[in-house]
Nucleic acid binder design. Structure first.
Lengths: 221, 221, 221, 221
DNA sequence: TATGAATGAGGTTTCATTCAT
DNA sequence: AATGAATGAAACCTCATTCAT
């Protein structure tokens, strides 16, 4: 679930044939179902996903998702509440403490977003899910706003404010809308989601273009 | 259907004293169904939309959408192929011919995107639909890339190239990725789609922040 | 539905082969489904009845009962609200107006109950349904109490009161509980329902025994 | 299970210092499951009863009913075969031996039925169950006919025959159908089952009305 | 022996599609 | 040409039954 820790990959904990253990830790099963559900929901959207497909992907019987979760809707919500980028806390703390120059800090912050969102297929699918199902599940939108968006913007705002104090950032209307500074990353994420197959993007160069533009603008001198 | 130009309306290209009211009725009905279908698909997504609701919204009998369109899928595709911002041709032409300074041209172009995408609820819903249903209808994604995205980027690229020649635009990596310059508009469109209700955005000021940032960057001097 | 009018039998309105008319009067279809549902519910009880069986018996597609009725529960309630012995009004009126001797009136009234309840297989099945599903559908129990039971008891009470005035009925505690006078009919109905197959009852003689007992009692003189 | 005699409880026929607690436990469990099953079946009917609820009520694990009984159906039959009024043998014997006057004997017998059936909520629920599930389990109907109904009627018949011999009972058609004499008790039992909540019955007075009616009839002199 | 997670057949309900009218 | 009743596949969900522990 948009977690980057490699050991969480269920396909890699290989330990022999293991002929379908009938009973596992409740939590393990639940996680496997949530994991499978995330993939299915992300691939087809809420309405078009069939619980049976979730079950098949999780390698369990048709009825098990309904056994673990009250309803399809409850499963969906549970999926999305688990996904949140789990290392955001740490990231925030690191930036809070650091005292590097604004240019460095911004580069690092934007790089973190590319790593976690733009270059992470699962995070991109989550993004799609949130956009697609927003009207049906407004609480989720709000949840993600509070947990991710608002916090990221606040962090960016603090960084910029400090930069202004230090004379490293030019005061301007964009400071009030830090979204603008991050926007190219969102553009890249959506590009990947929509067009990557036929119109690939060189993310490394896009990233540099992003940094250059938001730092210096297109206007000369 | 995100069409702002009246001449695209098939009911107004009357030629003669309407000797064939039946035929007129047919095309009118079809348009009404497409219109209703767009609203329903945009509100609920492809899978969750019921043809009966489309029919009800269009004010026709339940079976009529299936009568006019081979299948739900065909209806969906027909809807999306009709939507494309129909005045883009004109817009392109105007920019091609104009010779104003780059700053002016960019402001106008970006303003056009705000007007047509960010501030237009139907266009935003179309955006949502494309993001949501992309995996199921890749031709549509490709169609919109060709019809809108590629053309917009090409126009932007020409504008910037001309600006560089004139010394009005600083050469830099961003010129290769004109997406970066338009990105804040996309950000605003998605913000409106997702968060506007609880966290409204002052679009006029956001627009100015956008222009200022992409022109001058956050770095001083 | 416990209606005794022969012309209501759908199997007798034969008018040629008639190759399954796709469309009928809405009301006709609804009646056919209600009719089939009554038979199925009566045979197996509420929970054990499958809508598909109702559909099959009604000669319609699986989904049609759900199309006509919001839910299985709604169908069940609709079934039971339609069943009520439909000629009770008339019966009541006839007794109200008549001035015959009490013995005659009672014989006629009890005979009417035998005809409508004891000897009517559909009414017996209705009785079974009410007893079986009472706890799940208390409104129905109440409905039948009000529509049938209470009215029948009131009628009986008026008959007896008039009889006492005329000296044709012995005052006694049973007058307060007219149920006791009708009780053997209920016994017969249940006997038919439960034991008739292996232990048949001669209803004509039982009826005479019933009349004799409640008129004269077992005690001599 | 409608057993009023404590000695029928398998947990109390202790014989010795309990050297086999395991075996005891098994039978206890089985009884508890049967007991719980009776309550659940009686409350909701056969089809609507879930084995999980039976298990919960019995305080055992979900799978145990299936572990003790081959199937839900087998459990149901086991339940009903255990229920039978267990003190009927004794009752019968007592009446056989007694030599009291017919009026007394009848009053005692009818009172016994009120006590065991009409005023016993569990017996009433059993009655409901038999009526409701008769078509699905005809053996049970037959079983109860043989064990209870037939024997009760035979006893009543002997009582009445003796009464006629003694001149205490008027010969009449009702003697052939002793059901008629007991019928008001059945009426009272069903009334309790169906209408008691909203239309309570004074059982003591009803009982007196019953006795008076079947002894003397409604006709004067 | 007892548990309860897991299975999967089968039920209710939905809805795209058909077609008599 | 248009209607909307009717169809029936397929979805969600329930629950009797199984069986590893």
């Amino acid at each position: 679930m948009v977690k980057n820790t490699p050991q969480s990959d269920p396909t890699t904990d290989a330990s022999g044939p293991e002929p379908v253990p009938r009973r596992r830790a409740r939590e393990t099963r639940e996680s496997e179902i949530l994991e499978a559900a995330f993939e299915e929901f992300a691939a087809a959207g809420y309405a078009a996903t069939r619980l049976e497909d979730v079950a098949r992907r999780a390698g369990v019987a048709k009825g098990l998702p309904s056994f673990y979760f009250e309803s399809k809707e409850a499963l969906f919500k549970a999926v999305l509440r688990r996904v949140v980028l789990p290392d955001w806390d740490m990231l925030e703390a690191r930036f809070e403490q650091s005292d590097e120059r604004t240019a460095e800090a911004l580069r690092r912050l934007i790089a973190a977003v590319y790593e976690r969102l733009v270059e992470n297929p699962r995070a991109r699918r989550l993004l799609r899910l949130l956009i697609a199902e927003g009207p049906r599940f407004p609480e989720l939108t709000e949840f993600y706003h509070a947990e991710l968006v608002a916090r990221a913007l606040a962090l960016l705002r603090r960084l910029l404010a400090r930069g202004v104090e230090r004379g490293e950032v030019r005061p301007g209307p964009a400071l009030e809308y830090p979204q603008t500074i991050m926007a190219p990353a969102l553009m890249a994420a959506l590009w990947q989601l929509l067009f990557a197959e036929h119109h690939p993007l060189d993310l490394a160069r896009f990233f540099e273009a992003h940094l250059d533009l938001v730092a210096n603008g297109w206007a000369p001198g």
